[in-house]
Simulated assay, not measured.
Amino acid sequence: MHRPDGPSTASSPDPGRRRAVSAFAQADAAFLREAWAKLGGGREISPLRGPESGLVMVRGRAGGGGAPFNLGEASVTRASVRLDGGTVGHSMVLGRDGTRATYAAAFDALWQVEAERDDVESHVVTVVETALADADRERRSETEATRVDFFTMMRGED
């Protein structure tokens, strides 16, 4: 039942799908192509829209909570596909890689197929999330190694 004072549950995005779509969008095109060869089961990917490249405005906030400001533009590529079973998937990836956008959309569609979800989660989403976490940990470690601690010593009155 839709309540006029709050959002409908039908329009609330599935957090599991949101997480999966984020992983697909950040994955490497070669990884997605190889994973599709293993998990796609010979399914045909039919393009509905795109892939098409364009620009989006990136906005930021000073300190994470200040007033929003326009940071600049970023290239993105979006795609919408339909698998031969009728499931539709969508993607938007940073950059101008149409192949990556197409496979990301295909995995979004495959993730929506209940019988395929566990395989997609374990062989694609988890692998991508682990690789991203490892890269982030390595980047933080390299940054920490170059950190300089500044301090001020007060001298007594001479």
Rank of each mutant, 00 (worst) to 15 (best):
S22Q: 12
E73C: 02
D158Y: 12
V88H: 02
S141D: 10
A133G: 03
E114P: 10
V125S: 06
G63K: 08
A67L: 13
V148S: 09
M57H: 00
T152P: 00
P51V: 03
T102Y: 00
V21N: 09
E144D: 11
D149C: 05
A109H: 06
F151E: 13
R17I: 01
T102N: 01
D149K: 14
A106N: 06
A27F: 01
A131G: 03
E129Y: 10
V124G: 03
D84I: 03
D84G: 12
G89K: 04
R139A: 15
A23H: 03
A115W: 04
A25P: 00
A23P: 00
V88R: 12
G40S: 10
A145L: 11
L132V: 09
D14P: 06
F24Q: 01
V56S: 06
D84T: 10
V124N: 07
L32D: 03
G66E: 04
D28W: 06
R140P: 02
S141M: 11
A23Y: 00
G42E: 12
G85K: 09
S8N: 15
D28R: 07
T130Y: 02
V58D: 00
E142N: 13
R100E: 00
G41S: 11
R96Y: 04
Y103G: 02
D158H: 13
A101P: 02
G65W: 05
A145R: 15
R140N: 09
A135Y: 04
G64Q: 06
R96T: 12
V148F: 13
G42R: 11
A79R: 07
R18G: 04
V113G: 01
A67E: 14
G54W: 12
A74D: 06
N70S: 09
A101V: 01
E114G: 07
E114I: 09
L94P: 02
R61H: 08
A67Y: 07
R49Q: 15
D108S: 12
G16A: 14
A23V: 08
G86F: 03
R18M: 12
G64M: 07
S53N: 10
E138I: 10
V56A: 14
L39D: 06
F24R: 03
A115T: 15
R18T: 14
G89F: 05
E114N: 09
G156S: 15
G16F: 10
R139L: 12
L55R: 14
S12V: 15
H2K: 13
V148P: 00
V76Y: 08
G16K: 11
G63R: 06
A79N: 05
H123T: 04
F107Q: 02
G89W: 04
V120D: 05
L32V: 00
